[in-house]
């Protein structure tokens, strides 16, 4: 599977607009695509060094680690799935090779 190389980090804070919706969108997108990726939630106000180190300016930011892709704000499920789709394709290709 692709889960070893990729993971999703969601950056949030107390003031992040509609944060529960962000998490729900990420999880349901993964589920619909059948992707088993680790999802890490980072509160930048409690973990400022992560914000500094990873250059996070705004929340919510959804960082798809390994794919060099970030969503800022709340994406629609379709937008998120369109990007994650490439991981699914990669996983399927690898599965066939193995």
């Amino acid at each position: 599977m692709v889960s070893g190389r990729y993971k999703i980090v969601i950056f949030k804070s107390e003031r992040t607009p509609r944060y529960p919706q962000v998490v729900k969108t990420v999880r349901s997108s993964l589920e619909k695509l059948g992707l088993d990726l680790e999802v890490e939630e980072v509160d930048v106000s409690k973990n400022p060094e992560r914000a500094v180190r990873e250059g996070i300016i705004s929340t919510p930011t959804i960082d798809i680690v390994g794919l060099n892709w970030r969503f800022i704000g709340l994406p629609t499920e379709d937008e998120l799935m369109a990007v994650l789709e490439s991981l699914k394709e990669e996983g399927e290709t690898r599965g066939k090779e193995e």
Partner: peptide, 13 residues
């Protein structure tokens, strides 16, 4: 690569 929804964010980072 960046996708942006400009209505829903805070500059908390």
């Amino acid at each position: 690569a960046l996708s942006l929804n400009p209505d829903m964010f805070a500059l908390d980072g």
